[in-house]
């Protein structure tokens, strides 16, 4: 995939991973949602979603947080069992995530454990695209006036672009939400022919 390819010709895959915590070394993946898209359409009929048996103990707090029950988890596959299917779905596509450090870190860690090697993959980070607009240094005037920086969380970013509110922290819903956010960001701030390389750095 060349960095020069216009975004309208790129096959994309929005991904969201829900975890038991923030540290890829200490915590593990609870669920993965994948939503393939192009600039034109988001394809729900090819979406994928797994609840995984976590390697670390799932505490009650994260159970309620992710709307996943212990019963669901006890019947769930392990990451190793789905890793091939996951990699097949990712093949040839550019990932789209909101806050890449989570997805990158956890995927890398999980693949290292199950396949013995990690991966590097190109990622468009919709949070980073928001940061480009809303994380410019505030002027001294704004700081004096006590202005708070805009939130660049998924739900707040969506709201700014007039996307509807979704129930957060379900991996597939968040993947869908991220896919819609990317379409909205490009429609409002870039063009169909923007090279993908301008978006993924």
């Amino acid at each position: 995939m060349s960095a020069q390819t216009p975004i309208e010709r790129v096959q994309l895959l929005a991904m969201d991973i829900e975890t038991t915590g923030l540290d890829p070394q200490a915590h593990s993946i609870v669920s993965i949602g994948l939503m393939p898209l192009t600039l034109e359409r988001i394809h729900c009929n090819h979406s994928l979603y797994w609840v995984l048996k976590p390697t670390s103990e799932l505490n009650d707090k994260s159970v309620t947080f992710h709307h996943i029950t212990h019963a669901e988890i006890s019947n769930a596959p392990t990451f190793s069992q789905i890793s091939e299917q996951l990699l097949a779905a990712m093949a040839g596509k550019v990932m789209v995530v909101h806050y890449r450090n989570i997805e990158r870190g956890f995927l890398d860690q999980a693949l290292r454990k199950s396949l013995g090697e990690g991966i590097e993959f190109p990622v468009i980070d919709t949070m980073q695209l928001e940061a480009r607009v809303y994380r410019k240094k505030l002027s001294w005037f704004a700081r004096i006036m006590g202005r708070k920086p805009e939130s660049i969380r998924l739900s707040d970013s969506r709201e700014r672009l007039n996307l509807p509110a979704y129930q957060a922290h379900h991996a597939l819903t968040d993947a869908l939400g991220t896919a819609e956010l990317l379409q909205a960001q490009i429609a409002n701030r870039y063009s169909r022919t923007t090279p993908v390389g301008e978006l993924w750095d």
Binding site: R41, H43, C44, N45, N162, L163, P164, A179, A184
Partner: peptide, 29 residues
Amino acid sequence: RHVEVSYFKAGTDILEAGSSIQDLHYVRS
């Protein structure tokens, strides 16, 4: 499960007269 989704910025065309149509359209927001 079969829905496809797309975002349209205010002022953009969704359907143009005479072009072909393959889907029922639903206004989500």
